[in-house]
């Protein structure tokens, strides 16, 4: 009698295959920003400062690059809910290093300027941002607060 493959095993193999395909199709994460080369996908400016910027990876695996946190936030308002798999921002103290936007901490209107005029910089966590606030001043925000604050690219207050 020919040995048949048990249905449970078949199922398991199928599930594993599907899972590995799904993993393979998914973008691994953010890509490096190529300075003085990549344009910002929101404001079109060429990205030139490694201390700022962000990326969004869509569920389809496409990577969008931004020169500033304000542009990432502005762009994310223009896309459909659920289209974005993850958003990342640059840790301003470690140029080129990305942290997830939803777990990052932000400082706005502190001592540091940012490329789109909102003086908005990111740190790996809210705690890290609070530690830097003593030196940089400004106000500490979460990603949700940054999103709520970003209604237009131009600042509303003139110093």
């Amino acid at each position: 009698m020919r040995r048949t493959v048990p249905p449970v095993r078949t199922l398991l193999v199928a599930v594993l295959l599907a899972a590995s395909l799904a993993v393979a199709c998914r973008a691994a994460g953010p890509e490096p920003l190529r300075l003085n080369e990549d344009p910002c996908d929101f404001c079109r400016m060429t990205i030139s400062d490694a201390r700022f910027g962000g990326e969004a990876v869509t569920r389809a695996g496409r990577v969008y690059k931004f020169d500033s946190i304000e542009c990432l936030a502005g762009w994310s308002r223009t896309v459909k809910d659920g289209a974005v798999a993850a958003m990342y921002v640059i840790d301003t103290q470690h140029p080129g290093v990305f942290v997830r936007a939803d777990s990052a901490g932000f400082i706005k209107d502190g001592f540091m300027q940012s490329p789109m005029g909102k003086a908005l910089v990111a740190f790996p966590s809210r705690k890290a941002a609070l530690e830097q606030q003593t030196m940089l001043g400004g106000r500490v925000m979460t990603w949700a607060e940054v999103m709520a604050d970003t209604t237009a690219p131009a600042p509303t207050v003139t110093k």
Binding site: L35, N36, S48, D49, A50, P95, G96, Q113, T158, K159
Partner: peptide, 13 residues
């Protein structure tokens, strides 16, 4: 360096 560079004449406010 390419990674950190600033502007020639920079005006802010």
């Amino acid at each position: 360096s390419q990674t950190t560079s600033g502007n020639g004449i920079h005006l802010w406010y």
